[in-house]
């Protein structure tokens, strides 16, 4: 049965190299003959057996002997494993196409087909590692969009200077558009301590909030190639029609700094170890996630 594995392996290699095509044909002939209950005539199975055991012979004669004598059984085991993994892969592809996640509609596990999803989500990490379970914070005075009575509340902890927070913004905007009227969205600044200007930008956004222009300013910060010097931050404020005198005073005010610190400390208390981190009600999502991933959780929460 090793020929079935050989057929797939050599078939794939044969796409790229002509030298494997003959082997793939031999493997096909061998498989075909076995299916029709005849003996493999190409001798490919025997060649593979002797090549494998020959190589092992030098390193571990005992193992080589065991493999040589039980080659057919081992071949069957590998063939069954291969068939099982092929079926499982097919199921994953089906799930991905239908549900947007290869693990099924209700799973939050890794899906390699998702181009944004990583095993360990990429985030702009803070200087410390994850120490506690993530827990959704109080909304407090943080800027929010949507009704207070919404069934879904999404809280984002983000940092304007973090590339992953910025990368996630497109999806966030898509989610806001798609679920407008059914959810509440809250943004909390989590200026990364290891990013030099992150706190300045967070304070500027806080000042925009105090001027009642947070969402416009927030949108400008995310949609531009951000510059973090005071002059640029003030120019964005001008663009958002914010009173510049008040804005400049606010940038140096204790109130704005304290408000930013409050949100940062909320983040620490919630177990944030990198940005962006989202809480969809009480379900956490770390790193930039796909629209499908948000959709899946939102739908699940809506069904409750």
């Amino acid at each position: 049965m090793i020929c079935l594995i050989a057929l797939i392996a050599f078939g794939i290699l044969g796409i790229f190299s002509v030298s494997y095509r003959k082997l793939a044909l031999e493997a096909f002939d061998c498989v075909f003959r076995r299916i029709t209950l005849r003996k493999c005539e190409s001798g490919l199975d025997q060649r593979l057996k002797s090549q494998i055991t020959g190589k092992l012979m030098v390193k571990s004669p005992k193992l080589a002997s065991k493999i040589y004598k039980n080659f057919e059984v081992i071949s069957w085991i590998f063939t069954i494993l291969m068939i099982a993994s092929t079926i499982y892969s097919g199921y994953g592809i089906y799930n991905f196409l239908v549900h947007g996640n290869c693990n099924g509609p209700d799973s939050n596990a890794l899906c390699i087909f998702d181009p944004l999803k990583k095993e360990e989500p990429e985030t702009c990490s803070v200087a410390f590692q994850k120490t506690a379970e993530l827990e959704a914070p109080e909304i407090g005075d943080s800027p929010s969009l949507g009704s207070l009575n919404s069934k879904i509340t999404i809280i984002e902890f983000g940092c304007y200077t973090c590339q992953y927070t910025r990368e996630a913004q497109e999806t966030v905007e898509k989610v806001l558009k798609e679920y407008k009227g059914t959810m509440r969205f809250v943004y909390k600044s989590f200026p990364l301590p290891n990013h030099e200007s992150s706190k300045n930008v967070a304070i500027a956004a806080e000042c925009a909030k105090l001027s009642g222009k947070f969402w416009l300013y927030n949108s400008l910060l995310f949609n531009k190639d951000i510059k973090t010097d005071d002059k640029s931050l003030i120019s964005y404020a001008k663009e958002a029609n914010i009173n510049i005198t008040q804005f400049e005073q606010c940038l140096n005010s204790q109130e704005a700094i304290e408000n930013v610190d409050i949100e940062f400390n909320q983040g620490i208390a919630s177990g944030i170890y990198g940005t962006p981190t989202f809480f969809i009600n009480n379900i956490s999502l770390v790193g930039p996630q796909s629209f499908e991933e948000f959709t899946k959780i939102i739908k699940k929460e809506l069904r409750k």
Binding site: G43, Q46, R47, K49, S50, Q51, I52, T53, G54, K55, M57, V58
Partner: peptide, 14 residues
Amino acid sequence: TDPHNVASMLDASN
């Protein structure tokens, strides 16, 4: 033992 296996194993091993 198939002689082809013998030759193949001698080649693969040494």
